[in-house]
Amino acid sequence: MQVVHTISDLRAALHGRGRPAFVPTMGNLHDGHLALVRQARPLGEVLVASIFVNRLQFLPHEDFDSYPRTLQADCSRLEAESCDIVFAPAERDLYPEPQTFTVTPDPALANILEGQFRPGFFTGVCTVVMKLLWCVFAGSGGTAVFGRKDYQQQMVIRRMVRQFALPVEIVSADICRAADGLALSSRNAYLSDEERARAVQLSRTLAWLSQAALEPGSKLGALEAQAMQRLGDGGWQPDYLVVRQRSDLQPPTAETLRAGQLVALGAARLGQTRLIDNLEF
């Protein structure tokens, strides 16, 4: 396995090796990340993972400086999964000058839910993903795998790739969960033992909301408010717990509510840790 740090070294390592399959990460890898790597393995001729904590997608009060950086351990785990190339640039390598050109996604999709509570987040995500895709796929096509836990994010990226006609297929991978149902996340490491025991309440509340939404005569707004109250009573600070159409993340109409193809999404803070999750139904 090669570990490279500059764009020129990455392109030299990729030269002549065929179509890449790519898994972008911010490191501090867990089993959910490794599941993405395994899914990507047969989708290309050379398997690339990136590790880069992207300053552009963190708000000033968020955890950029304290976000776990575990490059040596991450590389060991990727080598065990037969990854071919790890691209681990320093900030000066990926952003050698201030990134004054950015990618601004469609506000109809990017300014709701996560975008409402983290303004500018998806501009930071789109800018770094666009740059990483060009670094990996310049002169070739290929496949990139993203986790479905970041549901809105992978929708934004998929639309960006389509509208810019990038030669990249975006593949969504299922959420990996712990035995009790908690979605795996690097930020789970921030939870105390007591908080970890309660963290599964988020996925259970989304499951309750999705089931209740399908009951005849259900009032979706009231159910969403009740879901927020459930988490609030459990000591959480919820940002949103909603049911949306999978196609565009807009509130369902009476017709689309009956037809299905829905997703329940939630974001809430437990102590100092903000968790997100979703459930398609």
Rank of each mutant, 00 (worst) to 15 (best):
F146Y: 13
Q72M: 10
L29D: 14
Q153P: 02
I51D: 14
N111W: 07
N111L: 10
E114V: 08
L36F: 03
L29T: 12
M130W: 10
S140C: 10
G32C: 01
D150N: 14
T104A: 03
P60C: 04
P42A: 08
T127W: 01
T102H: 14
V46R: 07
E114S: 07
V46E: 03
D84T: 05
E81N: 05
E91Q: 10
L132K: 08
D74L: 06
F137C: 04
R118T: 01
D93Y: 09
P42Q: 03
E62H: 10
I51M: 06
G32W: 02
L47P: 03
I51F: 01
Q72D: 15
R77Q: 15
N111C: 13
R118S: 05
G44F: 10
F58P: 02
F87L: 04
N111S: 15
V37M: 08
A88Y: 12
S76A: 13
S76D: 15
W134P: 00
P105C: 13
P20H: 02
E79G: 04
F22Q: 09
D31T: 03
K149M: 08
D63P: 01
L109F: 15
L36A: 13
S140P: 13
R19T: 14
L78E: 08
P107M: 05
Q72T: 08
V129P: 04
S50I: 10
P119K: 00
F117V: 07
A35H: 08
E114Q: 06
A108W: 06
R55E: 05
L71K: 00
P20G: 09
Q39C: 04
R118V: 03
V53W: 09
